[in-house]
Design a protein around this nucleic acid. Sequence first.
RNA 1: GGCGGCAUAGCCAAGUGGCUAAGGCAGCGGUCUGCAAAACCGUUAUUCACCGGUUCGAAUCCGGUUGCCGCCUCCA
Length: 493
Amino acid sequence: MSVRFYNTMTNKKEEFVPLEEGKVGMYVCGITAYDMCHIGHARSAVVFDVIFKYFKYRGYNVTYVKNFTDVDDKIIAKANEEGTDISEISERYIKEHNEDMDRFGIARPTMTPKATENIQGMIRLISTLIEKGLAYDVDGDVYFSVGKFKQYGKLSGRHIEEMVAGARIEVDEKKTNPLDFILWKSAKEGEPWWDSPWGRGRPGWHIECSVMSQRFLGTTFDIHGGGRDLIFPHHENEIAQAEGASGEIFARYWIHNGFIRVNQEKMSKSLGNIFNMREAMNQYHPEVLRLFMMHSHYRSPVDFSDESLAEARLGMERFYGTLRNIKQYLATDIDFSALSSKSLTGNDEAIFEKVTTLPERFTEAMDDDFNTARALGYIFDVVRLINGYCSDKKFRPTPEALYVLNAAMTAIREVGKVLGLFLEDPDDYFEQDKKREAAKFGLNIDEIERLIEERQKARAAGNWKKADEIRDHLVSKKITLKDTPETTTWTIG
RNA sequence: GGCGGCAUAGCCAAGUGGCUAAGGCAGCGGUCUGCAAAACCGUUAUUCACCGGUUCGAAUCCGGUUGCCGCCUCCA
């Protein structure tokens, strides 16, 4: 079996055959460093983080390159606003980006090049394009001549003539064809610049990705990814630049993630419905946000709302609840180290078989276009199975049972690691959750625990009326109690 | 105007030619519990927006209709 996924270039699911056996070269368009990251950036990061981790899980040696755009109009505007230079702005937001992504459980890519570190490579590529007659220089501005690249539009399925007729394109006197895009911009007063054969200026947006991807991954490489909105014009232009210059195929497979929506609308700055990552992480555990995203296929749009996040939180509670349960059983001093799967019989054996084959089902789901939703379904199956196993009246924590539970935990953790889930200690997870929820609802944890203690005394005395009064009071504050013979635990929400 | 995507139970969401249409949330009945909660068991779509067609057979393929969304301008 091999990994299959949807290739935007062909609009079909295809079997993935890497250029070089056992290796994957992947380039993903990163952020323009001029503002805090929002959950849309987080989704893209999660999608490619999971793909990165999954290829590694499948035994590939992956080189994952994700760039930072650190020179651009918006960065310049912000720098001018603050009376500083662009590097201060970009460095600040790259730092914020890394902090957010780390907290989100996103593994650092193999390489994270910056545009400004690759200006010479861009100048070389632009020069080649001019030599080949695919680009032209007008007063220090260099444009790509779209009409000269026969395959223009092959990724997005567009045709040059139709786009010209489409008319929403700004008229620029300097361009031969209104669809031509800029490769090099001449510097205006007060803008950062680099020397070039066409005078002082800076690169256009698209050129950096053509250069950096090929620099680190080769002229032709395996996978290029990014958000759906980058298909046109960004990725189309990257192809034109790279393939126009080299005459060879640029990226062999294209992966694009779907968008985050809010109330059925795209989340965008112009609509003012942006949720930034940091804010979201204060409201929900990063794993809850990841679970929410992975609940849907990576190419589908997902609707971001309090309801959907609350549901993801409940799902997370289910996973961690089972892991906590297993952890408690394993904390006893029953020794199961001498056992092997051969020692198991009957139900123990059947459950063991089912849980230890989870990675196989997980792989089957992920091999099919990174189907995280189906994979999660399989993990939920194991959770239900284990909960049933433990809650059976005949269940006893025998060494055999603990051996099975340990295998279940190992299997869940193994696949969870690829998805970036279940990485917390279950008790820590619930502790964090409690604090976060308490802060959200303005509740005082000490006060709650004092009331619970008071209720415990009433319960011990058989004063059910008082115990229930206290519980009702807490329930009205969204606090749920769970009594066990010895103690009472509680959760919010 | 051009290009593309989506439509599956109360909600979220897999499934893209053939076993009983995954899984989660919510609901209902039961087990457990002082009562609850959690957990478990059972139950909840003869049916996959609508209309035609292809096929022995379609949620899945084809054509049309309706609705929603994205891209075509910076955008993950």
